[in-house]
Design a protein around this nucleic acid. Structure first.
Length: 511
RNA sequence: GGCCCAUUCGUCUAUCGGCUAGGACGCAAGAUUUUCAUUCUUGAAAGAGGAGUUCGACUCUCCUAUGGGCUACCA
C-alpha cells in the first residue's frame, strides 16, 4: 500500500453496539494494524432524533473490552478533532452549499408531510415515488423556483433541505475490495437529502464523505447494507473533485440470524438465549435490558476469535487466534461474500477452548468475584486450584461455581440418585473402614493417597466403583466432580474426615 | 414492486479448470474414565436448477430459483 493506511469505525450512538458492529470495528482494526496504519473512531451522531444517552460510552467500553484499540478519534483525540459529527456541524453546510453552487445539488422546500402524501398517492396507483430527475423541477426546489423566491423562503425561515442532483441515465462503475466491479445506472437512484435546515445537520451521506476526505481515510470497511449507497458516495467524491484521494471500499457480508431469515437482531438473542451485544445494556429510555457476552461469562479473546472467523478465514486450518495472530494473518481478500449465520454453539466452543487453556492465576482472578458473590472467602491460590481442576469441564467462567462449590462448602444435602445407588448394603461400613485408612495417612498428597487407598482396596478385594462412589457421595454430596484424589488432596485430611464423619452420623442408609 | 449483492455438508468455511470435494461446530457410534466432563478414533452429512464455454467445470458466462440488503429530512 503506497499511502498511509487510515481506516475508521464510524458508529451511530443510537443504542448499544451490536456484535455485527463489533466485527466491523474488528476488521477495521486488524486491517489498520496489519498495514501499520491508523484506526480512527468517529461518532456519527447526525440524527438528533435517535440519539441515545450512554450509547457512546457503551461503544467505547465495548471496543476496549474486545482489545480493539483506537489510535485517533473520540476518547483519544487527534489531529482532525473533533471526531464527533455533532461538534463538526459548521463544516458541513459549507460543503453542501459548495455542491449547490456547482449545480450538483439544490434546495428543496417540501415538507415531510407533503412528501408523505406524494408517496401514498404513488402507492395507490401502484407506483413508487422517487425524488429524482423526473420530479425535481416540478416540486418546490431551487431548480423550479426563481432565485428571489428561494432567497425569500430561506430568509423567512422556511424549512429546507439540500438534495443531491442525481444525474439521469449515467452508469457509475465502482470497485469493491470484496465484491469486485459493480455497475449501477443513476436513473435508478434518487436525490438524497444531504443537509437539513431543521436541525442544521447533514445526513449520513454528506457527513461521511466530507469527514472521510478531511480525515484522510484510505479504506472504508463497512457493512454490506451500505453497498446501495456506494454510487451516491462515488458521485459525491466526483462532485467535490476529490476523486484522486477517494478511499477504497470494502463491503462486509452481514451477520444473519441462527435460524430463519434476516439479519441478526436483539430479539433473536432473547429468544434463543445468547447475547447479541458485547456488554450488558440497559436502555435509559425504556429500562429494557439486554445480555452481553462479557456478563454471560465469555472471554473477550474468545469472543473476538469467534467474530473474526465469522466471514473471514485464514486459508489454513488454524482456528484459535490471538489478536496478534489475527493481525498477522488478516486480509480483506479472504473475507467471504455471503452473509454468515451466527451460531451460538460455535461461540460456546470457542469460549471453552480458551477456558481450557487459561492458567490457574488467570482463572483465579476471574473466579474470585463469583466466589465472593456466593459467600466464599478464599485465597487466590485455592480459587485458582479449584478452577484449574475443573476447567476442562467448563465452557464459561460462570460454570465454575456449580462445578467447584463442594471444594469450598461441605455438602449438607446429598444427591438422591447417588444416595440411593451407593448409600446402602455394606458401603456405609466400608466408608467407616476407609475413614480409618485415610486417618492413618500422613502424606495426603494426591499420589500418596491414591496409592494407599488403591492398595487397601486391592488387598480387601473391594469393588473400586462402590468404594469410590461412596466416598464421592460423602465428600461431594453427589455423583459429580473430578478424580476422587483431586478432591481429597484439595480438601485435605482434616476436612475429608469431617465430611465422612458427618455422613456416617447423619445420612440414613437406604434399604 | 424497483435496484444491488449473494448461493459448497444443518451451520461456519477450504477449493482460485483436473475432486476419491478438505477442516471446524453440532450430531451419531466406539475407546478411555470410580462419576461427570475432557481427550482420542470412526461415521453420517454439501457444490440450488438449467443452458453454454472447455478435452475437462464446484470453479468461467448466461438464464431461472432461492436468500439477503437497500429503497426516510435513520445510520
Amino acid at each position: 500500500m503506497s499511502q498511509q493506511v487510515r481506516v475508521r469505525f464510524a458508529p451511530s450512538p443510537t443504542g448499544p453496539l451490536h456484535m455485527g458492529g463489533v466485527r466491523t470495528a474488528l476488521y477495521n482494526f486488524l486491517f489498520a494494524r496489519r498495514h501499520g496504519g491508523k484506526m480512527i473512531l468517529r461518532i456519527e451522531d447526525t440524527d438528533s432524533q435517535r440519539f441515545v444517552p450512554g450509547a457512546e460510552e457503551y461503544i467505547l467500553e465495548s471496543l476496549k473490552w474486545c482489545g480493539i484499540e483506537i489510535d485517533e478519534g473520540v476518547g483519544v483525540g487527534g489531529p482532525h478533532a473533533p471526531y464527533r459529527q455533532s461538534e463538526r456541524r459548521e463544516i458541513y453546510l459549507k460543503y453542501a452549499k459548495q455542491l449547490v453552487d456547482a449545480d450538483w445539488a439544490y434546495y428543496a422546500f417540501d415538507t415531510a408531510a407533503e412528501l408523505d402524501t406524494l408517496r401514498k398517492e404513488a402507492e395507490a396507483k401502484g407506483e413508487t415515488f422517487a425524488y429524482n430527475y423526473a420530479v425535481r423541477e416540478k416540486l418546490p426546489t431551487s431548480l423550479s423556483l426563481s432565485k428571489e423566491e428561494v432567497e425569500q423562503r430561506i430568509a423567512r425561515g422556511d424549512q429546507w433541505v439540500i438534495r443531491f442532483k442525481m444525474p439521469e441515465n449515467e452508469v457509475v462503475e465502482m470497485d469493491d475490495l470484496i465484491r469486485g466491479h459493480v455497475k449501477v445506472n443513476t436513473s435508478t437512484l434518487d436525490d438524497k437529502v444531504l443537509y437539513k435546515s431543521a436541525d442544521a445537520l447533514p445526513t449520513y451521506h454528506l457527513a461521511n464523505i466530507v469527514d472521510d476526505h478531511l480525515m484522510e481515510i484510505s479504506h472504508v470497511i463497512r457493512g454490506e447494507e451500505w453497498l446501495p449507497s456506494l454510487p451516491l458516495h462515488y458521485l459525491l467524491y466526483k462532485a467535490f473533485g476529490w476523486e484522486d484521494t477517494k478511499p477504497q471500499f470494502a463491503h462486509l457480508p452481514l451477520l444473519l440470524k441462527p435460524t430463519g431469515g434476516g439479519k441478526l437482531s436483539k430479539r433473536d438473542g432473547d429468544k434463543m438465549g445468547f447475547p447479541v451485544f458485547p456488554l450488558f445494556w440497559k436502555s435509559p429510555a425504556t429500562g429494557e435490558t439486554a445480555h452481553g457476552y462479557r456478563e454471560d461469562g465469555y472471554f473477550p479473546e474468545a469472543f473476538v476469535n469467534m467474530l473474526a472467523l465469522l466471514g473471514w478465514n485464514p486459508g489454513t486450518e488454524q482456528e484459535i487466534f490471538s489478536m496478534q495472530e489475527l493481525i498477522d494473518s488478516f486480509s480483506l481478500d479472504r473475507v467471504s461474500k455471503a452473509g454468515a449465520r451466527f451460531q451460538p454453539d460455535k461461540a460456546k466452543w470457542f469460549n471453552a477452548q480458551y477456558m481450557h487453556h487459561k492458567s490457574d492465576e488467570e482463572l483465579a482472578a476471574l473466579f474470585q468475584p463469583i466466589l465472593k458473590a456466593n459467600g466464599v472467602e478464599t485465597s487466590d491460590e485455592l480459587a485458582g486450584k479449584a478452577a484449574g481442576i475443573m476447567k476442562e469441564r467448563a465452557s464459561f467462567i460462570t460454570d465454575l461455581w456449580d462445578l467447584t462449590s463442594y471444594f469450598f462448602v461441605a455438602p449438607t444435602q446429598y444427591d438422591e440418585k447417588q444416595t440411593k445407588k451407593y448409600w446402602k448394603g455394606e458401603n456405609p461400613a466400608r466408608l467407616a473402614e476407609l475413614r480409618e485408612v485415610l486417618a492413618a495417612i500422613d502424606d495426603f498428597s494426591l499420589e500418596n493417597t491414591e496409592r494407599v487407598v488403591g492398595e487397601w482396596i486391592a488387598q480387601k478385594e473391594y469393588g473400586m466403583g462402590q468404594i469410590m462412589n461412596t466416598l464421592r457421595l460423602a465428600l461431594v454430596g453427589a455423583g459429580k466432580g473430578p478424580g476422587m484424589y483431586d478432591v481429597t488432596a484439595f480438601l485435605g485430611k482434616e476436612e475429608c474426615l469431617k465430611r465422612i464423619d458427618y455422613v456416617l452420623a447423619n445420612l440414613k442408609p437406604v434399604e
